[in-house]
């Protein structure tokens, strides 16, 4: 029973983690809470739905299509709404992010209607049993794909030239640009990477929960951001840890009988953790310099 809940929690958690990675990478590089990220995830889910329902493509192609739409979208958002504000007060890009998110929510509502839509059953309902634990095929796909994408991300950040540039930019924006790194390209690349993960997350969640609607990005976006902060914002392993932690906590919270408090669990945990560890579980302590 507990093991089963753990599996469900990890499945939910890995979708949070996929989205949280986008928040954490963007924050790590330009210290911006990208509130439009939840909307990128929502659009990914819708593109996946349209591909599967209308064009009858297989599920993996649908996910690639969702990425192909979300990546340019996120780069465009950054170009239009954040880049002009890079040198202004911290709150200005935040407000502009909220503007983008209202815009995208309304746009999708106008195009697709406000009501939740179901996802066609493209994955058959096979259940694998391992001792006391059951995995549905969807859960296996989510867990495996999420793990693969995270490994791929880890590889990109750790071992590629672009990844090195990303790490340099997040460490010191000014110095990185003095060292000949094209900072604008690095930032665009970061948004693209985050959007690809969010699009994958959107399609996976759409398939798992079978409900897609224009405001779906709001709560999930906030919770994933919570996950990123919980793990220590700016830290990639932190986002994964935070996402898993939140997913498991939420599933156990509901199982124990706090289901009406479901949305408060994430925030309650977050506040508790921040009070004892102000920069999250894996965050570096902030040094106050004079």
């Amino acid at each position: 029973m507990y093991l089963q809940q753990l599996v469900n929690g990890l499945t939910l958690g890995s979708t949070y983690a996929l989205i949280a990675l986008g928040y954490t990478m963007v924050y790590g590089i330009i210290q911006l809470i990208n509130f439009a990220h939840g909307e990128v995830y929502m659009i990914g889910a819708f593109v996946g739905l349209i591909m599967v329902a209308v064009y009858k493509v297989n599920f993996f192609l649908a996910m690639l299509a969702a990425m192909a739409v979300c990546v340019p979208l996120a780069v465009l958002i950054e170009r239009v709404a954040y880049r002009p504000l890079r040198r202004s007060t911290r709150l200005a890009p935040l407000i502009s992010a909220i503007g983008v998110s209202i815009f995208l929510q309304t746009l999708v509502t106008l195009m697709e209607g406000p009501n939740p839509k179901g996802f066609p059953q493209v994955i058959e309902d096979t259940v694998y049993v391992f001792g006391p634990v059951q995995f549905s095929k969807v859960q296996v796909i989510i867990l495996v794909l999420a793990a693969l994408l995270m490994l791929l991300l880890q590889y990109t950040v750790k071992y590629t030239r672009m990844g090195k540039a990303m790490r340099a930019t997040s460490e010191d924006y000014e110095t990185a640009s003095l060292m000949g790194i094209n900072v604008n390209r690095v930032i665009s690349f970061t948004f693209a990477l985050g959007a690809a993960l969010a699009a994958a997350g959107g399609v996976l969640v759409g398939m798992y929960f079978n409900s897609i609607y224009p405001l779906m990005g709001v709560t999930v976006g906030l919770k994933s951001f919570c996950a990123a902060v919980l793990g220590g914002i700016g830290s990639i392993p932190g986002a994964v840890l935070g996402g898993m932690f939140l997913g498991v906590a939420e599933v156990f919270g509901v199982a124990v009988g706090f289901d009406t408090y479901r949305d408060a669990i994430a925030f309650g945990l977050l506040i508790l953790v921040l009070l004892f560890k102000p920069t999250g579980l894996l965050g570096m302590p902030i040094q106050r310099k004079v």
Binding site: A81, I95, L104
Partner: peptide, 9 residues
């Protein structure tokens, strides 16, 4: 939404 972005930019 567009107005918010424009005002900030």
């Amino acid at each position: 939404g567009a107005l918010m972005v424009a005002m900030m930019v």
